[in-house]
Design a protein around this nucleic acid. Structure first.
Ligand SMILES: Nc1ncnc2c1ncn2[C@H]1C[C@H](O)[C@@H](COP(=O)(O)OP(=O)(O)OP(=O)(O)O)O1
Ligand SMILES: [Mn+2]
Ligand SMILES: [Mn+2]
Length: 293
DNA sequence: CATTACATTCCA
DNA sequence: TGGAATGTA
């Protein structure tokens, strides 16, 4: 049977990347509400990257720096350097190369943008599984991993990380008690081990933090990556997809953020990705090659 | 007044 | 085959 996909795919995306690059150049900016803006003259410049401290004040991309300062009075504004009257993105490009070089020691990397890359870990996972089993996996090896859909029960936890850990423990317990049927889930978990090591190496060698998603295809990996930013990674097993999709706006799926997504929504009269499962493949709008549901 | 950059697909 | 449209970072 060829139901889901058996591959293990990861997507690693740097957290507020240009901000981290500027913070490494000027350490005074670290741990502060901070943005990167370009073109100073008009309203203080347009913001293209925002630290998580600044996001807590409501600052976002596309804002003018002058407007952002109204929301966050002690906002630090780093500026994109200019060369020949044009924005000079060289420092960010070079930082990107540093990151890719570290990641390439772990897997074959497919660069998807200046701050993110996909990788197929299927082979590496199979190799590791020859020398290990479920019992060898501990929560300590997955310190920054969320397992989407877990914990399944809702008790009150003392902290967000306690909740994460409870979910992870439930997940590992289920893995070891459900025999062979959860081979795909085991592969994702081993993939998460590899990605934990990769992300630690990236931080050690570049100083930059990132988040990651681990799932069975690129669309799901990208989606998973965004679920627990910053500085965390998320495993998205196939079994957790229906619940996630049931409340997920169509525009959140890669390639459906624009006019196509809006037209799908309006033509079929649906809001969430999960609503699309009631339609068959026959009703493809001469524009679909990629899906997941 | 967003800006800059890049990939893919469509189509004359 | 190259410019326009689309989508994303
Ligand atoms: N519209 C844009 N115009 C110019 N530069 C952009 C734009 N969007 C993103 N960038 C640049 C700045 C970002 O730091 C970098 C990576 O983008 P992206 O991954 O979407 O956000 P981010 O890394 O700043 O935050 P996050 O933590 O949410 O990933 O690319
Ligand atoms: Mn990013
Ligand atoms: Mn990105």
């Amino acid at each position: 049977m060829d139901i889901g996909e058996d591959r293990v795919i990861a997507l690693v995306d740097m957290d507020c990347f240009y901000v981290q690059v500027e913070q490494r150049i000027n350490p005074e900016l670290k741990n502060k509400p901070c943005v990167v803006a370009q073109y100073k003259t008009w309203k203080g410049g347009g913001i293209i990257a925002v630290s998580y401290e600044a996001r807590a004040h409501g600052v976002s991309r596309n804002m003018w720096a002058d407007d952002a300062r109204k929301l966050c009075p002690d906002l630090q504004v780093a500026r994109v350097r200019e060369a020949h009257g044009k924005a000079d993105l060289t420092p960010y490009r070079e930082a990107s190369v540093e990151v890719i070089e570290v990641m390439s020691r772990f897997a074959v990397i497919e660069r998807a943008s200046i701050d993110e890359a996909y990788m197929d870990l299927t082979g590496s996972v199979q190799d590791r599984l020859k020398h290990m089993s479920v019992q060898d996996i501990t929560p300590q090896q997955l310190k920054s991993t969320y397992t989407q859909g877990f914990p399944q029960t809702s008790t009150s936890d003392p902290s967000e990380d306690a909740r994460r850990l409870r979910g992870l423990q439930q997940w590992l317990e289920r893995l070891s008690s459900s025999g062979q049927s959860s081979r795909a889930e085991l592969c994702l978990t081993v993939g998460a081990l590899i990605v934990e090591e990769m992300r630690a190496a990236v931080e050690e060698h570049t100083g930059f933090r990132c988040s990651a998603g681990i799932s069975h295809n690129k669309v799901l990996a990208k989606l998973a990556c965004g679920l627990n930013k910053p500085n965390h990674q998320t495993v998205l097993p196939l079994g957790s997809v229906p619940e996630l999709f049931s409340t997920l706006p169509i525009r959140k799926i890669r390639n459906l953020g624009g006019k196509l997504g809006t037209s799908v929504k309006e033509t079929l009269g649906v809001e969430n990705i999960g609503d699309l499962t009631q339609f068959s493949k026959v009703q493809l709008e001469q524009h679909f090659g990629e899906k997941t549901g």
